[in-house]
């Protein structure tokens, strides 16, 4: 897509010598009357052609949008939810024509698969899991990991989908006797899985055998950290965490992300990078997403900020647009675009 609309650039962070920029590629509005809660990009096959489509989720409806030639988006499928509201979209890599969603009020109560019947293309939804679900993540090789329950009653399950999203296989992972907060796949090591726990540990599993390999205690300065990504390099694990509960400090302001390096053999860890806001920006971490080495966060101020983890600093800031605060930010799974959403259903697609 070429840029035809407003260009919104950067904002040089502190001592940035190479400011990044965000270029608006296209935008559309989901006219649903309920609150917009999530956005994602998926591959969807129609008439034998796989297309990069956008999924939007409001509290009571999930919609699939396909691209038209004119930088417009057309809504082609909707799934309605009348009993339990939608909390988040759970993309499952390597599966076509299937989306998972988590439903609940404050906590996840159900995970459902959304798909279309092959004959008449009518929308279907299938209940995959129900209960007190603490964390869920779609993994490569068509897998979905979820943890149900807390402490000693916790069950951690891996579900594997068939290529067409159909029949599935289930496997259990050894629970760590600590409540799991988030999961993260390890780039460069497909059979490893990380989890963060409520007592500030990072746990490492072997996905093939289900074994719990190690618990690593991380710095107690930030509680309830979320693990977004992990990379395996040269015998070490590099882990990107965010800190929604962190308090502002005079020295650093509000920490958004940190990059930790962990030696899995010794369970020792060292912080190598702390991502804070550039001067003049205020707010705490609300939600965020990390793809490769680029991290994006929505701040409580309604602004989106982006950090390059290799350069080690903030490279772009996107202030609220049309007087509407940002509430969602996701990297597209189908290209290098950034999806930014507002509560009223406006979705903006930027090239970074």
């Amino acid at each position: 897509y070429s840029t035809e609309q407003t260009e919104i650039t950067d904002l040089p962070a502190c001592d940035s010598w190479n400011p990044g920029s965000l270029h608006l590629v296209s935008k559309f509005k989901n006219p649903s009357s309920s609150c917009s809660v999530d956005v994602s990009a998926v591959w969807w096959e129609r008439a034998g052609v796989k297309e990069p489509c956008i999924i939007t989720a409001c509290e009571d409806v999930v919609s699939l949008w396909k691209p038209l030639d004119t930088l417009q988006w057309e809504k082609v499928h909707t799934w309605q939810f009348t009993e339990v509201p939608v909390l988040q979209i759970v993309p499952v890599p390597d599966v076509y024509n299937l989306i998972c969603v988590a439903l609940g009020n404050l906590e996840i109560r159900e995970i459902r698969a959304l798909l279309c019947s092959s004959g008449d293309e009518s929308e279907k939804q299938v209940l995959l899991k129900s209960g007190n679900i603490k964390a869920v993540l779609g993994l490569t090789k068509r897998r979905l990991v979820s943890s149900i329950g807390t402490f000693c009653n916790q069950q951690i399950q891996i579900m594997t989908f068939a290529e067409d999203g159909g029949s599935k296989d289930e496997q259990l992972l050894m629970p760590p006797d600590e409540t799991i907060l988030t999961f993260a796949e390890v780039q460069g090591m497909q059979d490893a899985l990380l989890g963060t726990t409520t007592v500030n540990n990072i746990v490492i599993w072997n996905l093939k055998t289900g074994q719990l390999l190690k618990k690593v205690h991380i710095d107690d300065s930030y509680q309830a950290s979320i693990c977004h990504r992990a990379y395996s390099e040269m015998g070490l694990l590099f882990v990107v965490l965010s800190h929604p509960c962190a308090k502002e400090s005079q020295a650093f302001g509000s920490p958004m992300f940190q990059l930790l390096v962990i030696n899995p053999k010794t369970a020792q860890s060292v912080r190598v990078l702390l991502c804070c806001l550039p001067q003049g920006q205020a707010g705490r971490f609300l939600e965020g997403d990390v793809k490769d080495h680029i991290a994006a966060a929505v701040l409580t101020s309604g602004t989106i900020a982006i950090w390059d983890l290799l350069l080690g600093h903030c490279t772009a800031v996107l202030p609220p647009v049309s007087d509407q605060n940002w509430s969602l930010v996701k990297w597209s799974g189908t290209d290098s675009h950034l999806l930014a959403g507002q509560k009223d259903g406006n979705i903006f697609i930027y090239r970074y």
């Binding site: 490492i204 072997n206 074994q211 190690k214 070490l236 390096v261 053999k265 010794t266 020792q268 912080r271």
Partner: peptide
């Protein structure tokens, strides 16, 4: 920070931990 703080590093940590951990 220094990688010395992390202790001895093994390139085969995943296989080694898998052989040591309970099944």
């Amino acid at each position: 920070c220094s990688t010395a703080d992390l202790g001895p590093i093994s390139l085969n940590w995943f296989e080694e931990l898998s052989s040591e951990a309970p099944p």
